[in-house]
Amino acid sequence: MPCSNHLSLRWHGKRCIQLVAATVVFLVICDQLGVTLHIAELDYQSEFRYPLEEDVSSSVESLKLGLEPDIHPINQYNYPFISDARRKCLDLNGNLQPLRLVYIVKSALDHLERRAAIRYTWGFEKRFSDVDIRRVFLVGKGSDAKVQRGIDAENAEHGDIVQADFADTYYNNTIKTMMGVKWAANYCSKAMFYAIVDDDVYISTKNLLRFLKHPTAYPQYWKEAFFASEQPAGKKTNVGVQRLKQVESFLDQQSGSRNKLYAGKVMHKSPLRHKFSTWYISVEEYPFSMWPPYVTGGATILSGDTMIDFYYMSHYVKHFRFDDIYLALLAKKLGITPLDNPEFHIYPDKPYASNDYEYVIAAHGYSNPQLLTKAWNEQKSLGNA
């Protein structure tokens, strides 16, 4: 009997150790997956707040007018420009030009081939003789002197590199984006629209311009104007051509839906709390259950008014390391609602098919410059780019 009791105790001891070990493993997994962090979140709808929490509207207006604001700014992106492409938006007399569209392309120091492909595809400034377009590339600073010499040579040839003195790393994307916003506000402030775009994105400038004519109704208004259902593929009736001209003429006179445009692929998502994710965010850094509605990074379209508002409001909104979320925080503070459009294929990607890109504005997944060039040239020949 004593022997039996001894064996029983040993079995129970082993069992306890196993249970303790399993519990520890379970808790570790829960911690890594962020289960406990989700429990600690605050409700976004009822409890959202983000510094600065007071009304700063009068101070923002003072900054716009060059006056001393009542409230001192809490956030300034004071990274010196190494190269600023300050003449990019000037006319021959040195005055700022009123432009239709400016591409601000977020790039990396060693992405020379991507930039080259963009210059001669969707970023080609003379794509349309009657539409004034400009293009710049945003980069930070690295530690490789050879790479920097290459950047300097590239800028000497093309004059389109905006480089600022911050480390060019993924988690500095907000700095990169906001230095682009700062550049626009200081050196290129008379454009109607700006597109902040990653260098691995396909863009149809033609479709983007069509979208900008009627942001809330693209592509439907365009499809209807074509009367495509009555004609063979790719053909338009004389009535259809006349109707298109009437639509474009009318829309060129309208601006109501475009004055405060912040558009692209709009997301309604929760913060990722699992710790192995690139996009992990602690509760301390952002305690709320949802992000503000945001335009996912890759292709963000801003009207000129929105770009300027974002720049000045950023002085009163605490820095956040994800650039698409930071722009959403600026928009929320300004009362600007992001506009979603299904022809921004940023997440998930839209695999290329020549017959399936007729209305596409933007598509992610073009890190291969040869693929970008091939797709764009095909779509241009089809009249879609």
Score class of each variant (00 low, 15 high):
Asp144His: 08
Phe193Lys: 00
Gln163Met: 05
Gln220Ala: 01
Val181Ser: 01
Trp183Thr: 04
Arg135Leu: 00
Tyr187Ser: 07
Lys236Met: 02
Trp122Asp: 14
Ala167Val: 08
Gln231Trp: 07
Glu157Cys: 09
Lys223Ala: 14
Ile196Ala: 00
Ser229Thr: 07
Tyr194Ser: 02
Tyr194Asp: 01
Lys146Phe: 01
Lys236Asp: 04
Ala153Met: 04
Lys236Asn: 14
Ala228Asn: 01
Asp199Pro: 11
Lys235Gln: 13
Ala225His: 13
Thr216Lys: 12
Phe128Asp: 15
Ile175Glu: 02
Gly123Glu: 14
Ala233Cys: 07
Asn186Phe: 06
Pro219Phe: 03
Glu154Met: 09
Gly150Pro: 00
Gly123Met: 15
Asp199Met: 07
Glu230Gln: 12
Tyr194Met: 00
Lys190Met: 01
His214Cys: 09
Ser204Glu: 12
Asp152Asn: 09
Phe166Arg: 06
Gln220Thr: 12
Phe211Leu: 04
Lys206Ile: 13
Thr121His: 10
Tyr170Gly: 01
Asp168Met: 12
Pro232Trp: 13
Tyr171Phe: 14
Ile196Arg: 02
Thr177Ile: 06
Pro219Glu: 11
Val162Gly: 07
Lys176Thr: 02
Gln148Asp: 03
Gly123Arg: 10
Ala164Asp: 07
Gln231Gly: 01
Val139Phe: 06
Gln231Phe: 03
Ala167Thr: 14
Glu224Met: 05
Trp122Asn: 14
Met192Leu: 12
Lys190Asn: 07
Lys190Asp: 07
Leu208Thr: 07
Leu209Ala: 11
Ser204Arg: 02
Thr237Gly: 05
Tyr170Leu: 05
Asn207Phe: 09
Lys141Cys: 09
Val181Arg: 01
Met192Glu: 13
Lys223Thr: 11
Val201Tyr: 12
Thr177Tyr: 09
